[in-house]
């Protein structure tokens, strides 16, 4: 079943930073970019499962902390020449709260 859950306030996520949400679907990394947009990906790098939440966020890309793959925040796709995809979750901001859709 698809449900929206309120997870935190926008300010709980540092700008160009991440928070980890524990959910039934596993850990989810919720990112905030320089323009205060939020994105959510399964916290597992398509390369060897590194925790993307621990990477450095720049533009709309996170660099995995383990072997520096670059993963697009919008779609979870690895940047060329690497190939792979991290599962994407829907997130939205309402007022100052951040909501995550867990499926």
């Amino acid at each position: 079943m698809v449900t929206w859950k309120q997870i935190c306030q926008l300010d709980d996520i540092p700008r160009l930073g991440t928070r980890v949400v524990r959910s039934v679907a596993g850990n989810v990394a919720v990112f905030r970019n320089g323009e205060d947009q939020v994105f959510a990906l399964h916290d597992k790098c398509p390369h060897r499962g590194g925790p993307l939440s621990q990477g450095i966020v720049a533009g709309s890309v996170v660099t995995c902390p383990l072997h520096s793959w670059k993963i697009g925040l919008e779609n979870g796709e690895a940047m060329a020449p690497d190939k792979g995809c991290a599962h994407r979750f829907s997130v939205k901001i309402e007022g100052s709260s951040v909501w995550l859709q867990i499926d």
Binding site: P14, R48, Q54, I56, V57, P65, L66
Partner: peptide, 17 residues
């Protein structure tokens, strides 16, 4: 946010996170 995770978290990240 401009520091590698190890420096941000003051510990060394391992291959299993």
């Amino acid at each position: 946010q401009s520091r590698f995770i190890n420096e941000r978290a003051h510990a060394n990240i391992q291959k299993d996170g």
